[in-house]
Design a protein around this nucleic acid. Structure first.
Lengths: 158, 158
DNA sequence: GCAATCTAGTTTAATCATGCAACCATCGGA
DNA sequence: TCCGATGGTTGCATGATTAAACTAGATTGC
């Protein structure tokens, strides 16, 4: 990924997430895993990325505990890559990315799929952020506080 | 960004979002913009990225309608970079990234800040996804449908 | 049981984006 | 007019990405 200042030691959680899954392929691999893709060759066929890159990405995702390898499942001797709880936790990020594109993309008519709830088959609502007492929050209604008590941060999501 | 198969023509909205903001710096630039950062030199100081890269990224973000340039505001002759509605629409993505890190990071004690609601100063809840009739949905409760009517997609967020 | 094919990689070479540093033009203040 | 800050641009070295060739073991077909 080109010599990058790793954000691993950054104290911003956004930067830390990006450090883990902030490249194109990692997120798309996780997306495919949600679709049920689990084998090396399947990932490669669906995503069309170079196999060496896939090798590196899969290994990194396993190292980070986002995917785990299981010895088999369909009887074949090959291993498969499955989402861990941490990997499944990426779901809201995928939904957020999807909804942003649905709302703001310049050519929404080219988007092929809609996320619907399985039971009723109807589109889901937008992701919603609530305060602990149940108020719906927008960007302007939130601010950042240092984790360890102390004084209010000046940095606010305006 | 290294000769990349551009996802611009991909029909998956996640891929399309990644194509727009799927690199490390773009998202961090948007994060800073939410913090109120608006000038070239501020972005450069806070993020510590090379100025040429910042130039390219800012231009790309402006081209995509995520940032817009305004001639001034504090009287100086320099321009400033402001979030457009499309840019402010990235907020849920930032929150999702933040919450994923908060929940799954191997060293959460290194995270410096907490997102709180401005009014009460208390941490926000997790992002929630609801069906149109108000049921809280997890990854397993959703599936994908082709946008243009027709038959159910086999690809489900399992 | 043998050959063909599939799987999951590794290796290699060419390419091209990235990051860094140095340079440059403009603006504002003294 | 000089000086520092601002907002870039240019050039080069690094190294990430890719396609393609190669490999070794597993599986399937016959």
């Amino acid at each position: 990924m080109v010599k990058r200042t790793s954000f691993e030691r950054d104290d911003c959680p956004i930067a830390r997430s990006l450090d883990a899954i902030g490249d194109w392929w990692s997120i798309l691999i996780i997306r495919e895993a949600f679709f049920g893709v689990s084998r090396f060759s399947e990932f490669q066929k669906k995503l069309g990325l170079a196999k060496n890159i896939l090798t590196v990405r899969l290994r990194a995702l396993v190292d980070q505990g986002i995917l785990k390898t299981a010895p088999a499942s369909d009887g074949s001797a090959y291993q498969e890559y499955l989402l861990t709880p941490k990997g499944r936790g990426v779901f809201p990020i995928l939904v957020a990315l999807r909804q942003w594109s649905e709302e703001f993309d310049a050519h929404p008519e080219e988007i092929a799929t809609i996320l619907v709830d399985k039971e009723k088959g109807r589109p889901v609502r937008k992701l919603e952020l609530y305060s602990q007492d149940g108020r719906l929050l927008g960007a302007g209604d939130t601010t950042l506080k240092p984790r360890l008590a102390g004084k209010q941060s000046k940095r606010a999501y305006s």
